Simulated scan of single mutants.
Amino acid sequence: MISISLCMITKNEEKSIENCLKSVHDIVDELIIVDTGSNDNTIEIIKKYSNNIYNFNWINDFSAARNYSFSLATKDYILWLDADDVLLEEDRVKLIELKNNLCDATDYVGMMYDYSFDDNGNCTYSFRRNRLVKNFRGFYWDCFMHERLNVWGNHEDYDIHITHTRKHDNNKRNIENFRKKMLENYYLNPRETYYYGGELFAGGYYDDAIRVLENFLEMDYDDNYDKVNALIKLADCYSSKGDYEKAIKYCTNTFNYEIPRAEVCYKLGYCFQKLQKYYEAIFWFKETLHSNCPNENFMKVDNSWINYLPYQQLCCCYYEVGDLKNSFRYNELAASEIPNDYYVIKNKEMFKSLGFQVD
């Protein structure tokens, strides 16, 4: 059996920290909590579970705080979590099994991160992260924000899910932190540049995002997944600005790195539809229905957009070219996905008025 140190960084986490610690404290062998300046009840709550609480002077660098927490661990392996993460009961059982059976030759373990959920509690976005790493191997964090854990050696992936429990809206804060860092003459590495561009895009600063993301694509960087995402964000920037020709260019540039993703095919269909090139749009919306994201470490669980939205847009495109039979057929398929959707219902009323047999 291996021993595990849980390493966490915290600041003002009184609303979530107890649920996190409750879900894991009796499985790990050591709790290492690095606090970066809490002024609420976070520390008092942590003391119910551990006295290994260390203060860290915040320097606008998440990696520095995480590296400090790792340096304090004394057990065989390090598990890292955020205060708003929990292990559900089935995942607690799986973690105990892993602890009892993990091969000592394993250097790091990947687990799924269930990050976002719909109003019914269904996971809508899940991806894999390296969560358990062997101690004393020199693994380290870099990038001051959207930090990355650098690992090497033998790895295994386990079907253990870490559940994220809080919605974040840190876009404004994150942009401010990036800008503050650059005012300190800090050089953004390629990954940080990519994430800065992403924050600018999310904040609606499309021209700035275009500049930063195009700069990122010129950098020496070997992560094709991030390159594809940068191209997709650039396409979205230009689409938001109404420049659909450039949006199409950036979408098709993703094909240099991987086979077409469903979301790229859908965006191409949307752009051609906006340009009133309906047959081209029909082609790409149909491709959306047959495409998947090829990276198994990033699993989009919510497939409603992969099915319902292409069906609905195919309904519209076939209507525009005068093919009412196919237009009706695709509205029926959209109804099979989301029967009470406003547009589905309005289209049913229209088709009924045109003499179609509507349920």
Rank of each mutant, 00 (worst) to 15 (best):
W80C: 14
S63E: 05
L79G: 08
D82L: 02
N60I: 11
V93T: 14
L81D: 02
N57P: 05
L88M: 15
Y68L: 15
D76P: 02
A65L: 00
K94C: 09
V93W: 14
R92W: 10
A73T: 08
D82N: 09
F70M: 05
Y77N: 06
A65Q: 02
Y68R: 14
F62S: 13
A65H: 04
F62Y: 14
E90S: 13
F56K: 11
W80Q: 15
T74I: 04
D76Q: 10
F56P: 07
L87P: 00
F56N: 11
D84M: 01
L87Y: 07
E89S: 12
N60S: 11
N60F: 12
I78C: 09
L72D: 04
K75V: 03
D85T: 03
T74V: 03
F62A: 15
L88P: 11
D84K: 01
D85L: 00
K75Y: 04
N60L: 12
K94G: 07
A64T: 10
D91C: 06
L87S: 08
S69H: 07
L79T: 05
S71R: 12
N57C: 09
I78M: 11
D76A: 10
Y77I: 01
L81Y: 02
Y77R: 05
A64W: 06
L72A: 03
I59R: 14
D85V: 02
E89P: 09
L79E: 04
R66G: 07
A73S: 12
S63P: 06
Y77M: 06
V93D: 15
I59A: 13
F70H: 05
L79D: 06
A64R: 07
N57W: 04
A73D: 08
